[in-house]
Write a protein that binds this DNA or RNA. Structure first.
Length: 681
DNA sequence: GGGAATGCGTTTTTT
DNA sequence: ACGCATTCCC
């Protein structure tokens, strides 16, 4: 990155030297709406970063620039880069993810919506718990009839909110087998809504809904909030849904200075209502919007782009855009055939070590997969060979049961009417299951969430009476407004450790995660900010070591979704089989297959220099049996696949290629590994 | 008999 | 890790 400006230096000159004509046009564009369509690796982020720096260098107040991004990592990265371009003023730019922005605005304006500003936030699992509770309260689970599972209902309702389509239509499409229960399903959604409203709890979707409600229904609020932001910038616009597009448009309704950046070909979140229509329709909402197209890739070599372009050519719906690159590099992506999952892991470990020998740091290497669990075998292999890695995607740190338990206890101190939190906490104790928890929490809520209900004689005589007493004492302690956040957290952890040992046999492994919890807490003043942070912007790694490795000294393992916006020198793509990538479930209809194509496009274009597509010859099927792993149709459908990739076969000669001093690998060691794999989870 | 504990089989992607 | 079904306990 370039050095900071010297006083008196004209930043404009710097921008012209650092950007190509299309990028410069976007960066230095005059006020007004602007759509930037940018292919993978064409400097999308760079353009936004320079735009922020350009605006501020022209005297725009940093706080009045709003930068909305998909992940907080992306936001921080951008502001860091903008600061190093210009100066620290760039750090004061407003923004974050849609959800974190919604949280900030709602804490200020909640009362206008008749909502407490001490609301707590439900994550996905909390929503499932709440739904479970209401489902049994309403008796929908026990009239003998089949009824959708709680988690599929949560998904359905979420889709309804994010697509803003009638629930009845979605039921007909997504779960036709439950068409008979349509009325009950609709009724249940109403019950969930009312309950959340009564108890001041919001799920992720509610945060967007409330923000939209505030902006769309309260004109004064809209003018006040939209008035604050002279410039609105949005990254990854292809992954916004209708709700977010509506919010964005309203935020820009006062000053009309809005720049959205995106790539229809990388739209991979349609399962949560995202639509690249938002990009297509942008000029309809903002007539006369300027448009800029970025097509030159600064990331990948031409052979890698050729494969990406080839994948996209098979798409039914496509837009005229063709990436090109001037980066030298002749070698084609490698399609590596391996025997099975274990050979795949073996190949990656060896190749990773070789790459490191060749001078490629671990931090410049990534392994990507369609689903988080696809890398399970690889993770074991990496661990046994002491190759440090971090895993992104799948179950996150904050989603682990013990972290959720601790958060739930803390939530009660903030909002004692949060029944989802009560439900979880009560079931920590032996002898309390869903039924008993339900009944106790009924008593608690009757008294407006008073903890002292827990110590009434009727309860203390039970086997779990002592636990409830301890809980009540703990809650009393952490509800104290004079106590610091850290002190509250320590109090909870001290008590929870005792409960945890009874509940989990791997308690000492889980124990280590609490250190991270304390580290995060140290950054916050109060409980409310801390819990919001955990719910909205949690640390995004799920496995591996957070703090004790230097930045670049670990290999990334990631889902394709979590790899969005990132790039590596060398990329391995796992399981290029039918059923794995694309998943079986996505092979049934063309719309899903289209999205898988875009996903593969995203995956391929993460690579700068080396790309390995790995194709096991056999895959472990349902049950224990191996079946033939067909080549992914997303590759097989390319008429000129042979020209676009170099096919190789990985057939290790076990004894000769093993490093000295290690045990020779024989067939039974593989079997042992299989057994270990099976029993370790 | 109600409700909790235990065992079994399955696993898409995320704010 | 979780939902679901079965078994076990009060």
């Amino acid at each position: 990155m370039t050095a900071p400006l010297t006083p008196g230096e004209d930043p404009t000159l710097r921008f012209e030297a650092a950007l190509n004509p299309a990028q410069l046009a976007a960066v230095s564009a005059p006020d007004g709406p602007h759509l930037v369509v940018a292919g993978a690796g064409t400097g999308k982020t760079r353009t936004l970063v320079y735009r922020v720096a350009w605006l501020i260098s022209r005297g725009i107040t940093p706080e009045s620039v709003l930068l909305l991004t998909f992940t907080r990592r992306a936001a921080q990265e951008m502001l860091k880069r903008a600061s190093s371009l210009l100066d620290e003023r760039c750090r004061r730019v407003s923004g974050g993810t849609y959800h974190s922005f919604a949280n900030l605005v709602l804490r200020r304006h909640a009362t206008r919506l008749g909502l407490s500003n001490r609301f707590t936030i439900l994550d996905r699992a909390d929503s499932v718990d709440l739904l479970q509770t209401l489902r049994s309260e309403a008796g929908y689970d026990k009239n003998g009839k089949r009824f959708p599972r709680a988690d599929s209902l949560v998904e359905l309702y979420s889709k309804q909110v994010n697509t803003q389509r009638p629930l009845a239509d979605l039921i007909a499409e997504e779960m036709p087998q439950f068409a008979d229960e349509k009325d009950a399903i609709i009724d249940l959604q109403g019950r969930v809504r009312r309950r959340k409203y009564e108890q001041s709890i919001l799920d992720y979707d509610d945060m967007l809904i409330c923000l939209l409600d505030l902006l769309a229904q309260h004109d004064e609020a809209r003018r006040e909030i939209a008035g604050l932001y002279r410039h609105v910038l949005v990254d990854e616009y292809q992954d916004t849904n209708r709700l977010q597009a509506h919010i964005t448009a309203l935020l820009a309704s006062v000053h009309r200075n809005i720049m959205v950046v995106g790539d229809e070909a990388q739209s991979i979140y349609s399962f949560r209502g995202a639509s690249f229509r938002n990009i297509i329709d942008f000029p309809k909402i903002f007539p006369g919007a300027r448009q800029t197209l970025l097509e030159q890739s600064y990331r990948s070599t031409q052979p890698i782009l050729d494969l990406g372009n080839g994948v996209l050519e098979q798409a039914k719906e496509r837009f005229p855009k063709r990436l090109f690159s001037l980066i030298p590099g002749e070698s084609k992506p490698v399609l590596m055939r391996v025997r099975d999952d274990y050979a795949q892991a073996d190949f990656i470990c060896r190749r990773v070590l070789e790459l490191r020998e060749e001078g490629v740091p671990l931090g410049q290497i990534a392994v990507l997969s369609r689903a988080a669990w696809h890398s399970n075998t690889l993770e074991l292999e990496l661990a046994s060979r002491n190759i440090p890695f971090r895993k992104f995607g799948g179950i996150k740190f904050v989603e682990a049961a013990h972290i959720k338990d601790v958060s739930a206890i803390l939530k009660l101190a903030l909002n004692p009417t949060d029944s989802a939190a009560w439900f979880r906490v009560l079931q920590l104790f032996e002898g309390i299951g869903p039924r008993t928890a339900q009944s106790i929490l009924g008593h608690v809520l009757e008294r407006g969430g008073d903890f002292r209900v827990l110590v009434q004689p009727k309860l203390t005589v039970k086997t779990y009476g002592k636990d409830l007493k301890n809980l009540a004492a703990l809650l009393e302690e952490i509800a104290d407004p004079h106590k610091s956040l850290l002190a509250k957290l320590e109090a909870v952890l001290d008590r929870y450790r005792i409960w945890m040992v009874r509940k989990y046999d791997d308690a000492n492994v889980r124990q280590r995660d609490f250190e991270a919890l304390v580290v995060i807490a140290a950054r916050y003043e109060d409980l409310e900010a801390y819990l919001s942070e955990l719910a909205i912007d949690p640390p995004d790694f799920s496995r591996g070591r957070p703090d004790d490795d230097p930045e670049d000294e670990w290999l990334s393992i990631s889902t394709v979704h979590s790899a969005k916006g990132l790039e590596w020198h060398s990329v391995f793509l796992l399981n290029m089989n039918a059923g794995r990538f694309p998943l079986w479930s996505s092979m049934k209809n063309e719309a899903d297959l289209e999205e898988e194509r875009r996903l593969l496009y995203v995956a391929v274009t993460r690579a700068k220099r080396n790309l390995y597509l790995i194709k096991p010859e056999e895959i472990l099927a349902r049950g224990q049996s191996y079946e033939v792993g067909e080549l992914s149709p997303l590759l097989a459908e390319l008429p000129d696949l042979q020209q676009r990739v170099e096919e190789k076969i990985y057939a290790p000669k076990a004894s000769s290629s093993l490093p000295e001093g290690q045990e020779e690998k024989t067939d039974d060691s593989e079997q042992l590994r299989r057994i270990m794999d099976y029993f370790s989870t």
